[in-house]
Design a protein around this nucleic acid. Structure first.
Ligand SMILES: [Mn+2]
Ligand SMILES: [Mn+2]
Ligand SMILES: [Zn+2]
Ligand SMILES: [Zn+2]
Lengths: 145, 145
DNA sequence: TTAGATATTGATAATCATTATCAACTATAA
DNA sequence: TTATAGTTGATAATGATTATCAATATCTAA
């Protein structure tokens, strides 16, 4: 099952309707590898399909998140961004405070310890979000000068 | 050095001025142990000092964060909350998706592995934020029924 | 202690993102 | 095909944050 199928299935299962607008928003979202805001996605959508409204894009982003195709990432600068989730391994983020660049990081060991910790508190983990802020190699070199 | 001294020192060092309003906002913030929004802090402040404006509270919160007295916590529900930082050990959060309750968690082991991971990418860590979402013991029991 | 330079304040307006509204339209099942 | 109910796009409403500005307070240097 690819992301498109997953979304369609979700929409149907929820008793919602498959529309051309939703399909187009999804396609444009899947076609970019950036972490986009709603406004940025709206701008991308408008380049190809000028009739689609902002509200529809925002509503579709919400659906894409619920369906598991998409997830929200916030890097602490106040803007809400969205990235692909379906077909992508879980990962956390390492963000440079100086230039804004980021890395997608992952460590099974880290995840394992997290799980243990959560279980110790009697919680059942649904998801988690780890953002590390600091300086990237390039910016830390610059700073040391 | 306590939180108050730290804040005053920060204000002075920055060439800013010590004012009664800033002192009062800080005092009210330090007197609560909750994770408050700006609006909630404003409401608390107004109970004691009716003349202080919303803008002043918001501006002071920003300064408190810069000074290290306070830090922002976002639990993914869109609201920005603030908690004590000075004199408090670093901790992460474990949030119940059902009832909104949360735990403050900490694991030296987890932190150590995080550090190693960050260094592997050549980054210098400044801070990090880990939020785990799931079900608290009570809510997971309810769900199983 | 005083005076002047400059930061601060509180009220309000502006801004920005998100959400609600609603009439026209359309997907879906019968 | 038709009836039902979800969807759309434009726009208004909302809510949070930030900018503006004249009055006021702080701080420093004389
Ligand atoms: Mn990512
Ligand atoms: Mn906390
Ligand atoms: Zn950098
Ligand atoms: Zn709970």
């Amino acid at each position: 099952m690819n992301a498109k199928e997953r979304f369609e299935k979700f929409v149907t299962r929820k008793g919602l309707r498959r529309t051309l607008q939703r399909e187009r928003v999804l396609e444009v979202f899947l076609a970019t590898e950036r972490h986009v805001t709603v406004q940025e996605l709206y701008d991308l959508v408008r380049k190809k399909h000028s009739g689609i409204g902002y509200a529809t894009v925002a509503r579709t982003v919400k659906l894409m998140c619920e369906s598991g195709v998409c997830r929200q990432v916030d890097f602490g600068d106040g803007s809400h961004r969205f990235e692909h989730k379906h077909g992508h391994e879980h990962h956390d983020h390492l963000i440079c405070l100086e230039c804004g660049k980021f890395e997608e990081i992952y460590s099974p060991e880290l995840e394992k310890i997290q799980d243990r910790l959560v279980r110790k508190y009697g919680y059942i983990q649904e998801s988690h979000k780890l953002d590390v802020f600091g300086l990237c190699p390039r910016c830390s070199k610059k700073k040391r000068k």
